[in-house]
Design a binder for these strands. Structure first.
Lengths: 190, 190
DNA sequence: TCAACCTAGTCAACAAGTTGAGTATGCGAG
DNA sequence: CTCGCATACTCAACTTGTTGACTAGGTTGA
């Protein structure tokens, strides 16, 4: 029920097509609300039917037409009601951690390779987020930004993503060290 | 498809009932694989049908009977195959972050209250994880533990949970400060 | 010039996750 | 003596999320 709210929170930045929303999600919202483009298109249709967003078709040359969605008054109200509600605890699903939990009786080398991939991925995320942060700050210091910006919400969620990925990088490094030593021990035992 | 694998990774610790698995998940696996007890019971039935786990009924006095599940050889193989596979990127869904993103046009006070609740919850998690860690170490130093333990996987996933929740506490504190200041600014503007 | 990728979607089928209720007993605190 | 919590589940209905295939023109690089 709350992909809707994530979409509406993104539309606070102004009207957007389903395609652009998908990219925006991928770039920054994915950190706390993952979804596929298909989910977005389906949900946008439902939201339009429920009067939370309004769509207008923009005809384009040399490109397929697109539908731009914007928040309606009802949408803003709904979103506001959501912010006042009780929220479910966060749900995380991470296959890599499942594999690490089973690493001792599984394919140790493959798990180490997976952690290395994850680490590189997290490092790339950190860089992206830092670029996004610099863009949001727009040359101002954080203090200046917080004192003058209209919205601080997206900045705070970005900070959460940033420290989450930094933490990921640290954990990957630590785990690799531990598993490396374990591998050496097991080799010595044979 | 990989709740199965999370269940099997847990069963590496020995046979367990659906009810106990639910508690184990709630206590430590929930950190990277949330699920409801109903999901577990359903999945265990399917896993039994697929020959990944074996069940035996234990009749109890003064208590309902229970079915204890244990990994079969096929289950161990499947799990090992999983550790060698490519893993999907982690999926996170956190309503609180959605609310924070929309806080600027929503109910600021309610969002602050939600962050405070989350912070207390995260602090409680940190304590639980620290107790679990002490229990795993069993008086040994981390170094001793890593050198002698049969399994290091569950320890590594526990470390991930621990630093995730510590990070949560920090982020909650920081966000509250920022939103507090913003509230003061908006009050001054009226 | 051919392949690959970008824009901007749609449709259908299936898998997974959530919610609420129901069953039955035992134990301890107030 | 009753209320609530713990044990140990089951069933059914519903909502979400995932996967793969399809359309169709435009741009970029080898």
């Amino acid at each position: 029920m709350s992909l809707r709210n994530a979409v509406m929170a993104t539309l606070l930045d102004g009207e957007s097509s389903g395609y652009d929303l998908a990219k925006a999600f991928d770039a920054s919202v994915a950190n706390f609300w993952m979804c596929t483009p298909q989910q977005l298109y389906r949900e946008l249709d439902r939201m339009e039917a429920d009067g939370l967003v309004a769509a207008r078709v923009v005809e384009q040359e040399r490109r397929p037409n697109k539908r731009l969605f914007s928040l309606t008054g009802k949408g803003v109200e709904e979103l506001s009601r959501f912010t006042a509600a009780q929220h479910k605890p966060a749900a995380i699903r991470d296959e890599l951690l499942v594999a690490v939990m089973a690493a001792d009786s599984g394919d140790l080398e493959a798990v180490k390779a997976s952690i290395t991939r994850r680490r590189r991925w997290a490092e790339a995320k950190v860089e992206r987020y830092e670029r996004l942060r610099a863009k949001l700050l727009g040359g101002r210091t954080e203090e200046e930004f917080l004192a003058t910006a209209e919205r601080v919400g997206p900045y705070l969620t970005l900070l959460r993503g940033l420290s989450f990925e930094r933490d990921n990088v640290r954990w990957c490094a630590r785990s690799l060290t531990v598993l490396e030593r374990r591998g050496a021990r097991l080799d010595a035992a044979t």
